[in-house]
Amino acid sequence: MKIIGISGSIVGSKTRTAMTYTLELARKKYPDAEIELLDLADYELVFSDGRNYSDYEGDTKTVTEAIMAADAIIIGTPTFQASIPATLKNIFDLLPVDAFRDKVVSILVTAGTPKHYLMAEQQLKPILAYMKAHIVPLYVFIEEKDFHRKEIVNDDVLFRLERLVEDTVRYVDAFAGIRAAKDAEYDF
């Protein structure tokens, strides 16, 4: 199983902190899984110009091909202006419309205040559904007050991140079983 974590911004530290913690949990709980963090701050990505994702070069090609090869994607995003950052939106624009078909996608959101807790429901989930993702229904929302000195200090958040990892892997296994049963219906 290949799990990709995306830290969806080029600024700030909270989303990266949450993604690092989440993927460390995944590595401990599922040591046989191939797990990689794509922190968008570490890459020089071009803006989407409508080409096929495989026609790009450099970091853009590296990032899009890693996402396309994943079984599961954990998207971490901060909330900017009550929406997702342009950097993350550009990733979606670089990928084909059915990029997440047969992939499980889970979400964690960081925000300065609780006012933005519906951003994932109103902004991110519709994009993921349009791109054919199997979306883990419950996401983790982490507020400014849950961090102290670049550490998550809220035990409830830590518990919910652990549950997010478990749910993500369970969904991958469940959908693999569904696909196998569907494929078994055909004789060829």
Rank of each mutant, 00 (worst) to 15 (best):
D49Q: 04
D49C: 06
G50K: 04
G50R: 08
R51V: 03
N52E: 08
N52P: 00
Y53C: 07
G58E: 12
D59V: 08
D59A: 11
T64H: 06
T64N: 03
T64F: 08
T64M: 06
E65W: 03
A66R: 14
I67E: 02
A70Y: 08
D71M: 06
A72L: 01
I74D: 04
I75F: 08
T79R: 03
F80G: 00
Q81V: 07
S83I: 00
I84G: 01
P85A: 02
A86D: 10
T87S: 15
I91R: 14
D93H: 10
L94M: 12
L94P: 03
L94D: 11
D98Y: 09
A99F: 02
F100I: 09
R101H: 13
D102E: 14
K103A: 01
K103W: 05
V104D: 04
V105W: 03
V105K: 01
T110F: 04
G112L: 10
G112F: 10
T113K: 15
T113N: 07
K115F: 14
H116V: 06
Y117A: 01
L118P: 01
A120Q: 02
Q122N: 15
Q123M: 09
Q123A: 15
Q123W: 02
Q123C: 06
L124A: 09
K125S: 03
P126A: 04
A129Y: 02
A129L: 08
Y130G: 04
M131V: 11
M131N: 06
M131G: 05
K132Y: 05
A133E: 00
V136M: 02
Y139H: 14
V140A: 12
V140I: 07
I142G: 10
I142W: 14
E143S: 14
E144R: 15
K145L: 13
K145E: 15
D146K: 07
D146V: 01
F147H: 13
F147E: 09
H148V: 11
R149Q: 15
K150Q: 15
K150S: 12
E151I: 10
I152D: 03
V153I: 15
V153W: 11
V153Q: 05
V153M: 08
N154D: 12
N154I: 05
D155H: 11
L158D: 09
L158C: 12
F159D: 06
F159T: 12
R160S: 04
L161N: 08
L161Y: 04
E162P: 00
E162A: 02
E162I: 00
E162W: 00
L164T: 07
V165Y: 00
T168I: 05
V169I: 14
Y171M: 14
V172E: 13
D173Q: 14
F175R: 13
F175Q: 14
A176M: 05
G177Y: 10
I178K: 11
I178Y: 13
R179G: 01
R179T: 10
